[in-house]
Design a protein around this nucleic acid. Structure first.
Lengths: 229, 229
DNA sequence: TTGACATAGTGTCACAAGGACACTATAAAG
DNA sequence: CTTTATAGTGTCCTTGTGACACTATGTCAA
């Protein structure tokens, strides 16, 4: 009985589509490649899976190493292993997408001094490998998922106004939402906690702040509740 | 510049969760393993990805080889690469799920004479590796997806009665549906073509037959229509 | 032939959810 | 104290959803 299987092995990588939100845009974090192939081209942060870690762990480690980000929302997206996607040899990559609060983290240059920067998702540069396709897929998935699961809170600071929340949905879904209907709906879900605080340093009437209440959210999910924004 | 990357490689497999539908149950196709590890244990059909094929192709090939099924609905599900899931060495598997019409195909024993059989999804035997978890995940995914995408037609013969369609949804969703409301809803979608045919060889009033109209379905999707059964 | 049976097929009403729509309130800045 | 910028609020109409029960039609067996 042999100790290993008699079959070819593939190089295994992870790639992360990291989404962030600023005032006007949904952004994606990209890394400028220092080496061939595709040297100088922008790419999704990622790298090889080590022998002693799970694929999920690899994704988190790469994210941490290349961007300094940790404890972010991370979810597996899709696995691609088409021939020729890497000109060198067959490389299978497991793609993830992550949601981060843009203000929280300062994105660091990677340890090996590659450049990191945020780009608007609807106007990215040409990407290395098949990363354009992965980015497009991630965006579609996010738009789909945000409709029936309150993922969006991962993109906002802990305290936020309803207007900020609405703008986030408008940016992600790429369509305007009615202010009164939006508030009616989102408040009726009962997953927002109204705080005794308002925005600071604004040159107009300050908006009340809210917090996402994960406890009642989980309760709703258990009861089989349906969202849909 | 080296020709390959200096990183470990992993054995890469595909596993398929193949769903079928009979009168009373949602079924899953399993293979009895002939070799160690887990010899004699039932497992998901699957096998190694060859060097000259994409992962999708590998999934289709394995399905064909082990079960004789081809041209089925097949979709990628999830990739697992936890350490120790195969006792021999690190094996990364890309899981797929497939929907097939049970009557159409006669499931063949695999070429290497392993046993193949259908099991009710809610009462499967103990499975090899982490295949229990993959099966559970596939079932959840199917139940979720069937609500907003008319996948179910992949499980039915081309012509079917509304009662048969309703029973299919009831079996998948594991809850009863109201007959009149179901018909109202499904007919209002406009994706069923009413045929001038009725069931044959039934010992009671014969039901009218319908056909899934993929053309108008695609039109609906383009218009951003929302299903939800 | 007719009665028993098994399933097909059909409509209404009440309630909830969703979408369109416009004005007043409040704070800051000049 | 006026201007400016955004916060915050309610109604009505339409549509969707879910509960609910009887008649129609075919087969089969006595």
């Amino acid at each position: 009985m042999p100790h290993t299987y008699d079959y070819p092995r593939a190089a295994l990588t992870v790639d992360c589509v990291v989404f962030g939100l600023d005032e006007d845009d949904l952004k994606v974090l990209l890394i400028q490649r220092g080496q061939e192939p595709f040297a100088g081209r922008w790419a999704l942060p990622g790298g090889f899976v080590h022998v002693d870690e799970t694929i999920d762990q690899a994704a988190r480690r790469e994210l941490q190493e290349e961007t300094g980000l940790s404890k972010v929302y991370l979810e597996q997206l899709y696995t691609v292993g088409d021939l020729g996607r890497d000109p060198r040899e067959r490389v299978v990559t497991v793609a993830y997408y992550a949601l981060v609060r843009l203000g929280d983290h300062r994105v660091q240059a990677a340890t090996d001094a590659r450049n990191a920067a945020w780009f608007a998702v609807d106007d990215p540069p040409r990407l290395a490998f098949d990363h354009d396709a992965i980015l497009a897929l991630a965006l579609t998935r996010l738009q789909g998922k945000v409709r029936y699961q309150p993922l969006g809170f991962e993109l906002l600071p802990p305290k936020f106004s309803l207007t900020r929340l609405q703008r986030m949905y408008e940016i992600i879904l790429e369509r305007p939402l009615d202010k009164r209907n939006f508030r009616k709906k989102v408040l009726s879900l009962g997953i927002l906690e109204e705080l005794d605080e308002v925005e600071q340093d604004v040159a107009h009437r300050a908006a009340r702040l809210y917090r996402f209440d994960e406890r009642s959210y989980r309760q709703l999910v258990k009861d089989g509740f349906n969202f849909e924004l």
